Simulated assay, not measured.
Amino acid sequence: MIDSTNLLCNINKLHPDCDYLVCFIYNPAGFVSNPTDLINDLESQSNSVSVIIKPTF
């Protein structure tokens, strides 16, 4: 999942019409065990990326 989201972040940087990327990760079974760290990691790659993970456990 991290590799896929990193790819999206890089596409966001390259696409001239995309100013901001919002990633919504649906986590109903709780597979993302540490959502805060994942959010921080992905959002630290760019100022124009926001990550939302719901639900969080």
Rank of each mutant, 00 (worst) to 15 (best):
L14H: 09
I52M: 03
L21D: 03
V51D: 01
N12C: 14
S46V: 03
E43D: 10
L42S: 04
N12K: 15
V51P: 00
L42E: 05
P16M: 00
F24N: 13
I53T: 02
F31I: 12
T5W: 10
Y20T: 01
N47W: 07
S50G: 14
A29H: 10
P28W: 08
L21I: 05
N10T: 11
P55Q: 01
I53C: 04
S33W: 00
S48Y: 13
D3S: 09
D19F: 02
S48K: 14
E43C: 09
K13A: 13
V22T: 15
C18M: 14
F31M: 13
E43P: 02
D41M: 11
I2M: 05
D3Q: 06
V51W: 02
S4C: 04
F57I: 07
N47M: 13
P16K: 11
I25D: 00
Y26S: 07
Y26R: 07
V49N: 08
F57Q: 11
Q45D: 10
F31R: 09
L14I: 03
I11Q: 07
P35N: 03
F31P: 00
Q45S: 11
S33N: 04
S50M: 14
D41Q: 14
K54A: 10
L7R: 15
Y26H: 12
D17N: 14
D19L: 02
T56L: 06
